[in-house]
């Protein structure tokens, strides 16, 4: 092809792919405050979302994800306001999820400055919504969040989709669901292990790898990070394209920069 300036793609030297693995701090927001709990229980206040977003940006975060864990419409208005303020000051990609149910919700968040929206329960209740949203706004801004829990395999992948913050089983096989969402136009999958979320035992690496090997779109690993080694494990053993974590960053245990240096020390390409 004309654009392949001077290099035959079939005779490339090894290892020149420079795409960095993304580290994505996640901010669970309710009533305008960042909180963190175990499996959405026992929430602790972790601070002001705008200040925290700016801190992570300064530390070199590759993206930020905000999850609105408030169910009320008042909460969602607050979230839009938070997104507006962050987007005016932080120039990295912003993903916003939680309660995104209609095309109007997607438009409102994108207009507020979100680059992507994350759709979870609404996708399960109405899969056509993902196709409609991606057709309308482009798949680059549609993230489908899959909350998965291990179940007895019996013909399925071994994981089942849960909704409502991991409380409600759907009976849907998680991997089959991921494939269906890819076909519907999801631009990437935010894959959370509900078995690991909040446990600090590390990602469910089997889950992450099964998804990453089966799908062509990027997989963001989520749920269970308790240390820097877990982030690197998610990439090296789970083959995640991006890793998401919350509590290890919120309470100052580690900076995003430390996480990147650790990953680099294990041979993972990062943006330093």
């Amino acid at each position: 092809m004309n654009c392949r300036v001077g290099i035959d793609p079939l005779h490339l030297p090894d290892a020149i792919v420079g795409l960095a693995t993304r580290i994505i701090p996640c901010l669970d927001v309710t009533a305008g405050r960042v909180v963190k709990g175990v499996n959405f229980v026992g929430l602790r206040d972790a601070g002001d979302p705008i200040e925290i977003a700016k801190r992570y940006d300064a530390q070199g975060a590759d993206e930020l994800t905000f999850l609105d864990i408030t169910a009320s419409s008042d909460g969602r208005d607050t979230m839009v306001h938070v997104v507006e303020q962050v987007a005016a000051q932080v120039f990295i990609p912003l993903t916003v999820g939680g309660g995104v149910r209609t095309i109007a919700d997607v438009r409102r968040l994108l207009n507020a400055g979100a680059d992507k929206v994350s759709i979870n329960t609404a996708a399960v209740e109405n899969p056509a919504f993902v196709a409609e949203a991606s057709a309308r706004f482009g798949s680059q801004c549609i993230v489908v969040a899959v909350d998965a829990r291990r179940v007895a395999a019996e013909g399925g992948s071994g994981w089942e989709v849960y909704t409502h913050g991991g409380r409600r089983a759907t009976g849907i096989d998680a991997l089959a669901w991921g494939r269906r969402m890819e076909a519907a136009g999801a631009g990437e999958i935010l894959l959370t292990s509900m078995d690991r979320d909040g446990t600090r035992q590390g990602f469910d690496l089997d889950l992450t790898r099964v998804f990453s090997d089966a799908l062509d779109i990027p997989i963001i690993a989520s749920g269970g990070v308790g240390g820097l080694e877990h982030l690197a494990d998610g990439v090296q053993f789970g083959r995640a394209d991006a890793v998401l974590a919350a509590s290890i960053f919120h309470y100052g245990e580690h900076t995003v920069g430390e996480a990147k240096r650790h990953m680099a020390s294990r041979g993972i390409e990062v943006r330093l």
């Binding site: 020149i16 795409l19 798949s139």
Partner: peptide, 17 residues
């Protein structure tokens, strides 16, 4: 396909040089 033999995802998404 990346240097380690694993597939590269499309869309190309993230920070590249």
């Amino acid at each position: 396909v990346g240097a380690d033999g694993h597939k590269l995802k499309v869309p190309h998404m993230g920070w590249n040089k």
